[in-house]
């Protein structure tokens, strides 16, 4: 019984937590970046086409990484392709997910032994959320992968963990502060109060305190790459993004 087939007399209200509402919306509209590489891509196409019909889950293909929530790496990742995958992954906006489809992108698949030009698992380059085994996985298996991803999204939370929240606030107070997004050009506009003569006592007004903050901001340098916390390290090793449901990786 859904809501829609009932008749209500008054306008109605549903009370849910923000988190469940957000997650519910996100999990039911997963737009995927089609990253068809090899044979698995054909099965991905078949999943999107008439019989299996991705659309009924709200899953729509997008051709641009910037509009996508999840990337399906479908097929064999070669060494020549690896850096391109990383680049496309970095262009996706957070929150982003990766589904690795097929043995090849899980671990090298049939090419793990003598495949000199094959990357042995896409997780050497980008973090993977769901692994779908098979060579190629059936469309049903890919759908199952999506259901697993939905489960993962349902479990996500917007509430900060208390300890990290405190640590974050402390670090932002010392480094960027309230003006952390200032560009160097903007910072140049702020008069250098102490060098400019009239010393302002720090305790006097709110203005002064803010100016002092700004000065702090000038001396401390923001650690490079603090924003892209999910980007892999320079050596291409995946970071410790939690991998849910590693369904298995051996061919």
């Amino acid at each position: 019984m859904g809501f829609l087939d009932k008749k209500y007399h008054d306008p109605n209200i549903i009370i849910v937590s923000l988190e469940s509402a957000l997650n519910w919306a996100r999990k039911n509209s997963l737009w995927y970046e089609q990253f068809g590489l090899a044979c698995c891509a054909i099965e991905m196409m078949a999943t999107a086409a008439s019989r299996y019909d991705f659309d009924r889950f709200g899953i729509i293909p997008r051709s641009s990484p910037r509009q996508a929530d999840v990337m399906i790496v479908a097929g064999t990742v070669t060494l020549k392709m690896a850096s391109r995958i990383l680049r496309l992954y970095e262009q996706m906006s957070e929150p982003r997910y990766v589904i690795s489809m097929g043995s090849c992108s899980n671990c090298g698949g049939p090419y793990w032994e003598h495949g000199y030009h094959v990357l042995k698992g896409v997780d050497k380059v980008i973090p993977v959320d769901v692994y779908v085994p098979g060579c190629p996985p059936r469309p049903e298996a890919l759908l199952e992968g999506f259901l697993k991803l939905q489960e993962k999204i349902t479990g996500e939370t917007v509430i900060e963990d208390r300890a990290t929240a405190v640590a974050d606030r402390e670090s932002s107070a010392t480094s960027a502060g309230t003006t952390g997004t200032e560009t160097p050009a903007e910072r140049d506009l702020v008069p250098d109060l102490q060098a400019g003569g009239s010393p302002v006592p720090k305790t006097s007004t709110g203005d002064g305190a803010e100016a002092a903050d700004r000065q702090d901001a000038e001396v401390s340098t923001r650690p490079a790459g603090a924003a892209g916390d999910d980007a892999p390290g320079p050596d291409g090793a995946p970071q410790d993004k939690p991998k849910s449901n590693p369904q298995g990786g051996t061919p």
Binding site: L79, S83, Y116, L119, K124, G236
Partner: peptide
């Protein structure tokens, strides 16, 4: 032929 161990920093 001997396969190289790394290609552009990626293990092969």
């Amino acid at each position: 032929y001997v396969q190289q161990d790394f290609y552009q920093g990626i293990p092969t």
